[in-house]
């Protein structure tokens, strides 16, 4: 059975190939259909070389949302914590090692890793499609490169690039953000 989520996701993946993510979603979503939590920012792991397939997408995304460098040190930690505190959902492009750290930091703010796609550095076209879909607010249930969210190698040296969404867990009471509780 195809779920509404899968249908919407696949439609967005297809749509994303024809233009910038923000433009694609406007033309695809039927009136009244809500996406999931809106994406607040795009996090970019600067310790991995971005595949060229993703570079253009990142630049396009700058027009519609904050793009935040994802570095793991005390200075950036404060920015990252604020980002997690203030966001409902975030898209990221990173190595497995960085995702591993971020997933655990995000947990403290009530966020969960909900969808993830991966590819090695040699062919990232499917990853670009997944990233475009994620940035559009979709969580495709099936797409090339899509992998079980939690099943990844926390590695940097393996050359695998991950695109993912973390979002606030729905069970966190409304009006009482995870941040308010965890910090």
């Amino acid at each position: 059975m195809i779920t509404r989520r899968a249908l919407l996701g696949n439609a967005l993946v297809a749509a994303s190939t024809i233009g910038p993510a923000g433009a694609a979603i406007a033309g695809v979503l039927p009136p009244g259909v809500q996406t999931h939590r809106a994406i607040s920012a795009l996090l970019i792991d600067r310790t991995v070389r971005q595949p060229r397939e993703l570079s253009a997408l990142i630049e396009v995304s700058r027009r519609s949302m904050p793009v935040v460098d994802l570095t793991l040190d005390a200075v950036a930690h404060n920015t990252l914590q604020q980002c997690l505190r203030d966001s409902e959902a975030l898209v990221g492009i990173s190595s497995g090692a960085t995702l591993f750290c971020l997933e655990r930091l995000a947990w403290d703010h009530g966020h969960r890793l909900t969808v993830r796609a991966e590819a090695n550095g040699t062919d990232c076209s499917s990853l670009r499609k997944a990233a475009a879909a994620f940035l559009s607010g979709a969580r495709p249930a099936a797409a090339p490169g899509l992998s079980p969210p939690g099943a990844y190698a926390p590695s940097r040296a393996d050359g695998v690039v991950h695109v993912w969404i973390i979002e606030r867990k729905s069970s966190v009471p409304s009006g009482q953000t995870g941040a308010a509780q965890w910090s």
């Binding site: 310790t47 793991l72 040190d73 005390a74 930690h77 190595s95 090692a97 960085t98 591993f100 750290c101 190698a153 926390p154 590695s155 940097r156 040296a157 393996d158």
Partner: peptide
């Protein structure tokens, strides 16, 4: 000053033909 830069090393790549995860 604390950091997480130790993770920038990443774990070892492989051992006995298996990906090393930690």
């Amino acid at each position: 000053i604390p950091s997480l830069r130790t993770f920038s090393l990443g774990p070892m790549v492989s051992y006995d033909g298996e990906d090393v995860v930690g």
